[in-house]
C-alpha cells in the first residue's frame, strides 16, 4: 500500500472544502453568532492556502501574510460580536431576519 505524499494540492482542496462549508453557513444560518463563526472558517481556509503556498515556494511571505490575516480576524470577531451585543440590546434577538432596519 502506498499513499501519495502530501502536496500543496491536498491543502488547496481542503481549503476549498472548508471555504464551501463556511460560505454555506454564512448564506443560510439565521443566527448571527453562527454566521460570525462561519466567517472565521473562511479566514482559516484562506490561511491554509497561504501557508501551503509559502511551503511550496519556500518563501516566508505567505506565513507573514497568514499572521496578518489572523490579526484582522481577531479584530473582525471583536467588532462583529460588539455589533451582536448592540443588536441583542436593541431587539433581544440574534436572528438576522429580525434586524432588517438600521435604526438606532
Amino acid at each position: 500500500m502506498s499513499l501519495a505524499p502530501i502536496g500543496t494540492g491536498h491543502f488547496l482542496v481542503l481549503g476549498a472544502i472548508l471555504f464551501g462549508i463556511g460560505l454555506f453557513g454564512i448564506l443560510t444560518r439565521r443566527n448571527l453568532i453562527t454566521v460570525l463563526m462561519s466567517v472565521e472558517l473562511l479566514l482559516n481556509s484562506a490561511n491554509l492556502n497561504l501557508v501551503a503556498f509559502a511551503h511550496e515556494r519556500a518563501d516566508l511571505t505567505g506565513q507573514v501574510f497568514a499572521v496578518f490575516t489572523i490579526a484582522v480576524a481577531a479584530g473582525e470577531a471583536a467588532v462583529g460580536l460588539g455589533i451582536l451585543l448592540a443588536l441583542f440590546r436593541l431587539r433581544a434577538t440574534t436572528e438576522l431576519d429580525r434586524a432588517r432596519e438600521l435604526e438606532g
Binding site: A4, G7, T8, G9, A58
Partner: peptide
C-alpha cells in the same frame, strides 16, 4: 496540484 512542494523547507 500534486507537486510535493518540498522546494526546500
Amino acid at each position: 496540484g500534486a507537486a510535493a512542494g518540498a522546494a526546500g523547507t
